[in-house]
Write a protein that binds this DNA or RNA. Structure first.
Length: 568
RNA sequence: UGUCCGAUGGUGUAAUUGGCAACACGUCUGAUUCUGGAUCAGAAGAGUUCAGGUUCGAAACCUGAUCGGACAACCA
């Protein structure tokens, strides 16, 4: 008999590793960095985080969790003119909300300004950096092009002593912005533009949100980022593809400074269909009021998704599902929507609401009678219990759920047809009352079968359709924000010459309506609580919602095979 | 007219590192259901951008082409 001590290894499918995990597992095998795994999420506090950042957060923190390592949160705050505490606060809130914990490892690049200044001095002393007095425009002109070598600055061979003196005086605040910069002395003919004597420090007389007026010179991102990773002993510096061309420069700094070398690994950033992801464009939408702030539920920002009703679990699961690779990608937003439906299906309490009411009078039901019917809160989770739903003679149903000339495939209410009112009775439509002027249907007269109370009939006869309803006298009016995709085009940035991405904005992306809900909804919703409005979609109580005037945001519709059928 | 990176069903991501292309979403059937939801069962859809080469055998390795992306801020 063959030995088979561990059956589970046979059954468990081999976990599929992404290319980063493969690199890390290989490093662990080789005991690189003593098999330590230490990552970081390094945002600049100059905007709100979006779903693309969520991918990076899940990646970095997820890797640390998986390999028993650590992940730092570090703000790359090297440009005081663009950054603000408002952004650092929102970023911390979002990372925490996503479910990740940096413990005591909250850092700022500005924590290292003194050290980075010291690095700069070392470079000058080695003859590897110099102060350049050229203007921004002159520097740009002398940089050459991608196909032509640049020209060396006339200040390039300034003495070490002079550069050092000038650099100290820059720090002391003796010079105006733009008058001097510190540059690395590398190679003006390099095919890599980033190696053509890049700028290391510039003068900015702006108060920094953390260091105040202590500094008037600030390191460039390129001169701060790699060294920050090094100082934090980051083992795997994971970043997006566009920084790949910067890697030789970071490696140059590390080598010249003779400091610990993290390994940079680049991956392709997330693109989502029907939205834009660039901070600049999102800011434009906010600033020009195309949306109502960074946390507008139509925004792909984390706070926007949160306000729309997305859960951290659904976003983490999304990040897991899309994977990580190096090729450009556009993920179908339908996948994100699938992830939130999947999560909310298990968690959200069901409730009946009518969006577009059509009055129904149950003619054989006594006028002053009311009864409480039992309804299941979540058929996917019995532990969520049941509730009472009030029923009476006059109810609202959805206008969509009635058709005068119904095709055979239409399972809902029609003249002479019987349907089930969810958790209530079978009703049959006898009369259609119309406005004599407009010919618009104003109400329906129906009769119920008293034997079908609760929603099933003793004779076992089948009805094709079940529709939701709300008792008029018990109904609470609610405001519902029906959000749709922000853009009409799969790739809003796919534009003809001279066109602006805003021409692809969906003019119908927000529809505010009044709807009617069973009493349970208003009594049980606090800001952020999530519900499934039966047969309609998932909704989340807005933070402006009160018991008196409830407001709900549509997270996502339910899948709707009927409307799909109709289209084809 | 440069350098670097990439290319696998409609969309993503895999393929034990050279051994018959799999998974998820989407799409379509059917079953089931007091949500046209959920669930269950199944199907269609790529022969891996192209052309050569190495090999018994290539999505993978080599060469060339094509297409796409990144790079010339005192932004990150």
């Amino acid at each position: 008999m063959t030995e088979n001590t561990d059956i589970s290894t046979d059954k468990t499918p081999k976990p599929v590793l992404n290319f980063i995990q493969e690199i890390i597992e290989n490093d662990i095998r080789n005991n690189k960095n003593d098999a330590r795994v230490h990552t970081r999420f390094p945002p600049e506090p100059n905007g709100y985080l979006h779903i693309g950042h969520a991918k990076s957060i899940c990646l970095n923190f997820g890797l640390a969790n998986k390999y028993n390592g650590k992940c730092n949160l570090r703000f790359d705050d090297t440009n005081p003119v663009k950054e603000d505490v408002e952004y650092v606060d929102s970023i911390m809130e979002d990372v925490r909300w996503l479910g990740f914990d940096w413990e005591d490892r909250l850092f700022y690049a500005s924590d290292y300004f003194e050290q980075i200044y010291e690095f700069a001095c070392q470079l000058i002393q080695k003859g590897k950096a110099y102060i350049c007095d050229l203007s921004a425009e002159e520097i740009s002109n002398l940089r050459g092009t991608t196909t032509q070598a640049g020209t060396e600055s006339p200040y390039r061979n300034r003495t070490i002593e002079e550069s050092l003196d000038l650099f100290h005086r820059m720090r002391a605040g003796e010079f105006a912005e733009g008058s001097h910069v510190l540059r690395a002395k590398i190679d003006m003919a390099s095919p890599n533009m980033h190696m053509r004597d890049p700028i290391l420090y510039r003068i900015i007389h702006t108060e920094h949100h953390r260091t105040g007026n202590k500094w008037c010179i600030y390191p460039m991102y390129d001169f701060a980022h790699g060294q920050s990773d090094s100082l934090e002993r980051i083992t795997h510096s994971i970043c997006t593809l566009e920084f790949e061309v910067h890697r030789p420069l970071y490696d140059w700094f590390i080598r010249e400074l003779e400091i610990y070398a993290p390994q940079q690994i680049e991956f392709a950033r997330l693109n989502l269909s029907y939205t834009v992801m660039s901070k600049r464009k999102l800011l434009e939408l906010v600033k020009n009021n195309y949306v109502n702030g960074w946390d507008d539920p139509r925004m792909p920002t984390i706070c926007g998704l949160r306000r729309a009703g997305y859960t951290p679990e659904s976003i983490r699961n999304f990040a897991e599902t899309i994977g990580v690779a190096r090729r450009d990608n556009i993920i179908d937003v339908a996948l994100l929507e699938h992830c939130i439906r999947e999560d909310l299906n298990k968690k959200a309490a069901r409730v009946m609401t009518v969006m577009n009411p059509l009055k129904v009078i149950i003619t054989n039901y006594p006028e002053n009678q009311t009864e409480e019917l039992d309804a299941i809160n979540n058929p996917e989770d019995a532990s969520m219990g049941t509730r009472k739903v009030p029923f009476s003679r006059e109810i609202y149903i959805e206008r969509e759920d009635f058709m005068e000339d119904a095709p055979k495939k239409y399972f809902r209410l029609a003249p002479g047809k019987e349907v089930r009112l969810r958790y209530a009775y079978y009703i049959t439509c006898n009369d259609v009352i119309k406005d004599p002027e407009t010919n618009e249907i104003i109400e329906l007269h129906c009769t119920l079968d008293p034997l079908t109370k609760g929603g099933s009939s003793p004779d076992g006869r089948k009805v094709q359709g079940t529709i939701h309803w709300v008792s008029i006298q018990h109904a609470q009016q609610i405001q519902v924000n029906l959000y749709e995709r922000l853009f009409t085009k799969e790739n809003p940035e796919d534009l003809a010459e001279g066109e602006d991405f805003k021409i692809n904005l969906n003019s119908n992306s927000l529809n505010v309506i009044k709807a009617y809900a069973e009493p349970y909804l208003g009594q049980n919703s606090v800001s952020g609580s999530k519900f499934q409005f039966e047969r309609i979609g998932y909704f989340c109580a807005d933070y402006n919602s009160t018991n008196h005037s409830p407001i709900f945001n549509r997270t996502v519709t339910l899948k709707d095979s009927w409307s799909k059928m109709q289209k084809s």
